[in-house]
Design a protein around this nucleic acid. Structure first.
Lengths: 149, 149
DNA sequence: GTAATTAAAGATAAAAGAGTCTTAAATCAA
DNA sequence: TTGATTTAAGACTCTTTTATCTTTAATTAC
């Protein structure tokens, strides 16, 4: 797996929040039910997202989480960086410590080019882009077919 | 990290064997010393490689491991597939189970194209290609600068 | 103020990945 | 045959990731 499970869940959760596009907070319970994920685990993931200023939250009856800034301004890369870090986009594919153009590993050349593309793919796409696709029912967010009822 | 540590070590170990290009077996002890990796851990990794018919081995005084077929016929992809499996080259980037052209996740389109490139990069390169680079001292295999003395 | 609701925080546990250690088995050399 | 060498195999430990459960704190509605 390229992304950790935690990161997968984070992306899907934020996409769900983005599709709700209400001014209100979205309860974690609702997200976990709609995406069929563990409520407690998702709560924990949200702490990370809050720490990285991707979401804000409110406790209490009308509480929940919401995006910290417009969905247009949050890329998938932002989420990956917050949860999994950016090692994937920087490190040597063979795990060597000072792999560089000057001291390359055998795969350095092809990999460093590829790595940029990987970053690009995730940076080019915002939550808004994907939320629109989801709302147009062109794509899905969960193993369960219907998530938005 | 895209590849597991186990997989990194496996690739580097086989590259080392390929650079030795002797008809003899190469002791795991020698590999571990030259690559600065744990001998016992590397021994374990070699069991995987042997099971997947990437290497053969011999016990005893002149024993060790050697490539099961010519270095020209072993790609980096072969090693990755043996050690880490092929989930990375097949699975949905968001971890959805039946993500496909018919039932895509929001990232399916860009990802499925990208995934093919990823596979290609590793399939295009053989141990022989990289061993040649290493022997020409264009690249390195270890954090330690000199590995071939 | 009280009760219901919801995130925050922390303790705990299960599973997987990474790494170590010991013993057994095979091979070679003398 | 004996001893040295080297892989094979399995038990064991440590760390990280994933997941669960419980308690606390904040917010809202009444």
């Amino acid at each position: 797996m390229i992304l950790s499970k935690t990161c997968n869940y984070a992306i899907r959760a934020l996409l769900y929040v983005a599709t709700r596009k209400s001014d209100n907070f979205v309860p974690v319970r609702e997200i976990s039910q709609k995406l069929d994920l563990s409520f407690h685990f998702l709560s924990k993931i949200h702490l990370i997202l809050i720490q990285h200023h991707l979401t804000t939250s409110s406790r209490g009856v009308k509480g929940g989480v919401s995006l910290a800034r417009p969905a247009e301004d949050i890329t998938i890369y932002d989420i990956i960086e917050a949860v999994d870090g950016n090692a994937m986009f920087q490190n040597c594919v063979l795990g060597l410590e000072n792999c560089s153009d000057d001291h390359p590993c055998p795969l350095h050349h092809s990999w460093s080019e590829y790595r940029l593309n990987l970053k690009k793919i995730f940076q080019e796409v915002t939550l808004a882009d994907l939320a629109e696709k989801i709302n147009n029912e062109q794509v899905r967010l969960s193993n369960i077919t219907e998530i938005l009822d």
